[in-house]
């Protein structure tokens, strides 16, 4: 009666890949910067899921440790990115990322 044997690791990885692809689609498709940031969070979360699944497969703590580093990275990224969002909305009065393409010729 072993749960780890009854749950194929491939299914967890397929789920992680699917979540990552949904997040990547969101980053590429959406133009509202809040949704782009949320999609980035989804992608990082999918990476963390893959790490934890791998760590659980070999019963090591390293997967969870990598997940914690991803968590710290996500927190730092969100803090800086939301500061940029504030500046974007102050300068351009919009959350559209295309409004900030001033370097574009």
């Amino acid at each position: 009666m072993n749960f780890a044997l009854s749950l194929p690791l491939e299914h967890v990885f397929v789920l992680a890949a699917a979540l990552f692809c949904i997040g990547l689609t969101g980053v590429l498709v959406r133009r509202n910067v809040m949704f782009v940031l949320m999609s980035l969070e989804v992608m990082m979360n999918a990476c963390g899921l893959a790490f934890v699944a791998g760590g659980a497969r070999w019963a090591q703590a390293d997967g969870q440790i990598m997940f914690m580093f991803i968590l710290a990275l996500a927190a730092a990224e969100v803090a800086v990115a939301l500061g940029i969002v504030l500046q974007l909305s102050r300068r351009f009065d919009s959350l559209d990322v295309d409004s900030a393409d001033e370097m574009h010729s």
């Binding site: 749960f3 967890v12 934890v52 699944a53 659980a56 997967g63 969870q64 997940f67 914690m68």
Partner: peptide, 10 residues
Amino acid sequence: IFFLLGAPFA
């Protein structure tokens, strides 16, 4: 899913 994978802390 994390909990089911045996990672309660995560």
